[in-house]
Each structure stands twice: as C-alpha cells, then as structure tokens.
Simulated assay, not measured.
Amino acid sequence: MMTTQKMSKTLLAMMLGTALMSGSALAETTMDKTQSAADSAGQKVDSSMNKVGNFMDDSSITAKVKAALVDHDSIKSTDISVKTDDKVVTLSGFVESQDQAEAAVKVAKSVEGVSSVSDKLHVRDSKSQDMKGYAGDTATTSEIKAKLLADDIVPSRNVKVETTDGVVQLSGTVESQAQSDRAESITKAVDGVKSVKNDLKVK
C-alpha cells in the first residue's frame, strides 16, 4: 500500500512538473513575441537615431578636430578650415610649411570617429617671399596676361586673371574647351604660379 502511495505521489509530482513546464514555455513564447515586437520597434528608433547620429557625429568630429588643432602648438589653426562629411575630414586653407600641413593631417586622423582625412591645405610662401607678396602676385598676373595676349588660340580679352599668394584664378568666357585648357597650361608654365583655379566657362 505504501509503495502504491509513493508511486502516486511521484506520478502526481511529475504531472505537475510537466504542467508547470508547459505553462512556463507558453509564457516564454508570449514573452518572446512581445520582446521581438519591442526589438523591431527599437531597431526602427535606432535606425532613425543613426541618421541623426551621423549628422551629429560629423559636426562633433569637426568640433573635436578644431579643438585638437588649437591645442597643437606648432599649427596655426586660425587659417585652417575643417569640414566633415560622413566621417571624412577635409582640411583646407593655408599653413606656414609642409611640416605644419602634415602635422595637421596627423592630428585630424588621430581624432576619434575620423575615417579618413582629405588634405587640401596650401603652404604659404616663406617669409622672404611674403615681403614681396602682393608685388609678386601683381607681376605674376601681368606676365600671365602678356602670355595670353601673345597666344593665337586664347581670346585673352575675355579672360580675367587674379593671383593671390601664387594661386591664380582664371575666369570669364571662352569659345571652346581647347581654349580653356590652353589658358590653364600657359598660366601653369609661368614662374611663381603655385596652382591654377580654372573657372573659365565654355560658350
């Protein structure tokens, strides 16, 4: 008799355990569904936050790079412009030497969140050349104008020449791409020209 009672109790315990397990499994399934719904809603919020996050990241990266440049003793950061687009930092403006340009790029690369750095920095003339700065630019402009005037292909009266720190800007209207290219190559060949910004429009 005792053995039968023991067995009954064991069976009862097993049945109860199974019922509890299936009940908890059911509860888990319901919880899973609720959790996955919450997760997908969370992902939607996350993805929209990411868009805002990217914009915030770019502006905060720009701010961090500017701060890092200011903290660096050998870089004159006031002349450096910083822009960030999708974590790519572009540095532009003027520095005193190639070493400063390289240091600025290195500083920008070390800032957290920066994926790469585009170097558009120009090196200023040395101090001795700075003394003649404006006069040098005027002489360069005059020489370019004279060479364009002497050229048979380029309609020089339509081309405006401006030189700033050895950087020449060509503007105006020409009749063909060949004339635009010719004006640019003549300008690049002139002594004292560091780079040419060709803004000539072709009719």
Rank of each mutant, 00 (worst) to 15 (best):
K9N: 11
L11G: 09
L11D: 10
A13H: 13
L16Q: 05
L16T: 13
L16D: 05
L20D: 01
L20H: 04
M21R: 04
G23A: 14
S24F: 10
A25M: 11
A27R: 09
M31V: 15
T34N: 13
Q35T: 13
S36V: 14
S40F: 09
S40H: 12
V45C: 00
S48T: 15
S48K: 15
K51T: 11
G53Y: 14
G53M: 14
F55A: 14
D57V: 00
D58F: 01
A63N: 10
K64S: 10
V65G: 03
V70F: 09
D73I: 06
S74R: 09
K76Y: 05
K76I: 05
T78W: 02
T78P: 00
S81L: 07
V82I: 05
T84P: 05
D85K: 12
K87H: 13
V89W: 00
T90L: 03
V95Y: 00
Q98A: 10
D99G: 02
Q100G: 03
A103K: 09
V107W: 00
V107Y: 05
A108C: 01
A108T: 01
E112K: 11
G113L: 02
V114G: 00
K120S: 11
K120A: 11
L121E: 00
V123T: 11
V123M: 06
R124E: 12
D125A: 14
D125H: 10
D125Y: 05
K127S: 15
D130C: 02
K132N: 13
K132P: 04
Y134F: 14
G136M: 05
G136L: 08
T141V: 09
E143W: 03
A146V: 02
L149S: 06
D151P: 07
D152G: 09
V154I: 06
N158M: 04
N158Q: 10
V159W: 02
V159C: 05
K160T: 10
V161G: 04
V161R: 00
V161I: 07
T163V: 03
D165S: 14
G166C: 01
V167P: 00
V168Y: 06
Q169M: 10
G172N: 04
E175C: 01
Q177T: 09
Q179L: 07
R182T: 12
E184I: 04
E184P: 02
E184V: 09
E184T: 15
S185D: 11
I186K: 08
I186F: 02
I186S: 02
V190T: 07
V190N: 07
V190A: 00
G192I: 02
V193K: 04
V193Y: 09
V196N: 07
V196Y: 07
V196T: 08
V196A: 09
N198I: 12
L200Q: 01
V202D: 06
K203R: 13
